[in-house]
Simulated scan of single mutants.
Amino acid sequence: MFLQDKWRFLIVTIPIKQIRLRKLNMRLKHPFTTSFGTMQDRHFFITEVLDDRGNRGFGESVAFISPWYSEETVETNLHVMKDFLIPILQENEIKHPNDVSALFEPIKRNLMAKSALEGAIWDLYAKRNKMTLANALGGEKKVIDVGVSIGIQPTVKQLLETIEENVDAGYKRIKIKIKPGWDVDVLREVRSHFPNTPIMADANSAYTLADLDHLKQLDDLNLMMIEQPLAHDDIIDHATLQANMDTPICLDESIHSFEDTRKAIQLGSCKIINIKIGRVGGLTEAIRIHDYCQKQGIDVWCGGMLEAGVGRAHNIALTTLSGFTMPGDTAGSSNYWEKDIISPEVIVHDGVITVPDKPGIGYDIDEEALHEFTVDEKVFQF
């Protein structure tokens, strides 16, 4: 693989001595509403992998407490990590983080569980080699442009006020969640108030091809894209919709792998792809998708899953790859949390994040905050 070739001089065995799974519960500053429902309490796992030198690599699970985004949940992540994935790691030698996805291949799907462990091993690998995670992935950018995702608001007035706050803060793109009954008219109102702001709509699979004529009205609004308008597992109907719309379609939930990506592009199902590390099973697969899209001339950007600081740091590192041509969802920590679990927190200045230059994810773990938000913990010795 590309990364193994590029960093072949660094490939040595990664001696894992311990894995720690911490279950956290953090409360979002504001409820976050999509077409699926509303959430404010965020339950997830922080994975920690310890080596023989005392280096600690960190990852983060992104599944939700209910299976409304995908079939995975917080509890299924625990089951799969504890009973299947960690035993695989205990029984095998790892020379490079790319090995992890291959070792996990016999376990079907459960991509977010796989990603949570693989991400921690990538961070550990970078720290062992005294390099940033961004550099370990092949990234070169020193700063990244970021946008913000805004959930469905109680009123249009509140939506406009929220957009204005984020535009004033310098965010490079505004993503607005939509659903039937909260879509075209709302976006028209938004566009009338913000005629030049880069705006996209995210439907989270809320529509069908029966809504084609309704969705075509979006072509008049000069949107950057509409994200995942149709079924979460579809690439066929999206091709029909894209052929009948000028607005670029971006696929999210439909893309779980390099193969999904290849087929969607071949069918003409989209013009843009949102790469989420957890959704595709980890950083190794995310890079494969990035590399292929770059060769095919397909724009990609890094989506968010309401991550805390560790997951946010992984997103930053991935976005340093050259093919990420559009602002992602990695807004600052303070947009979501009163207190994050990293130090310093992720900070956005005028819509830009400066990529940290410390080894690994580049942020320190706030041990006090991590302890405060931990509700359960399991340790696995090697």
Score class of each variant (00 low, 15 high):
118 E>M: 07
53 R>F: 07
124 L>P: 00
120 A>M: 08
102 A>D: 05
81 M>Y: 03
140 E>Y: 11
89 L>V: 12
109 R>H: 13
69 Y>G: 00
130 K>Q: 12
15 P>M: 06
32 F>M: 15
61 S>I: 11
127 K>Y: 07
102 A>S: 15
55 N>K: 05
81 M>I: 12
92 N>D: 13
25 N>Q: 15
132 T>F: 10
71 E>W: 10
144 I>R: 01
17 K>S: 06
146 V>F: 10
52 D>F: 13
89 L>A: 06
90 Q>P: 14
124 L>I: 08
135 N>F: 09
130 K>F: 06
36 F>L: 15
68 W>T: 13
105 E>V: 05
93 E>C: 14
102 A>V: 11
57 G>T: 12
52 D>I: 13
139 G>N: 03
148 V>Y: 01
16 I>L: 15
134 A>L: 09
55 N>T: 12
59 G>R: 00
65 I>M: 12
111 L>M: 05
130 K>L: 10
88 I>T: 05
123 D>Q: 12
72 E>Q: 12
74 V>W: 03
43 H>G: 14
29 K>E: 09
130 K>Y: 10
87 P>L: 15
22 R>D: 11
52 D>Y: 12
147 G>N: 09
148 V>D: 02
51 D>F: 11
114 K>G: 03
137 L>S: 02
131 M>P: 02
72 E>S: 04
27 R>H: 13
98 N>S: 11
138 G>C: 05
25 N>W: 09
99 D>F: 08
135 N>S: 15
90 Q>S: 04
123 D>E: 12
35 S>G: 08
54 G>W: 15
14 I>K: 04
60 E>C: 08
50 L>R: 04
112 M>S: 06
65 I>R: 04
16 I>S: 02
55 N>E: 13
138 G>H: 06
115 S>N: 15
30 H>N: 13
16 I>F: 06
101 S>C: 07
115 S>K: 03
59 G>S: 05
38 T>K: 14
50 L>F: 10
48 E>R: 05
103 L>R: 13
59 G>T: 01
58 F>E: 11
60 E>Q: 06
43 H>R: 09
70 S>W: 11
136 A>T: 02
144 I>L: 14
64 F>D: 01
26 M>P: 03
29 K>Q: 11
123 D>A: 05
39 M>N: 10
141 K>R: 06
133 L>T: 01
103 L>G: 04
132 T>H: 06
61 S>Y: 12
64 F>R: 00
109 R>P: 02
79 H>V: 09
14 I>N: 03
85 L>W: 00
47 T>W: 04
121 I>C: 02
117 L>G: 00
121 I>F: 02
22 R>P: 11
137 L>W: 03
13 T>I: 14
44 F>L: 05
80 V>L: 06
116 A>K: 00
76 T>P: 02
41 D>M: 07
39 M>C: 15
67 P>A: 13
61 S>K: 02
129 N>L: 04
14 I>V: 14
128 R>D: 02
81 M>W: 01
105 E>P: 04
66 S>A: 10
148 V>E: 03
18 Q>A: 09
121 I>P: 00
82 K>P: 03
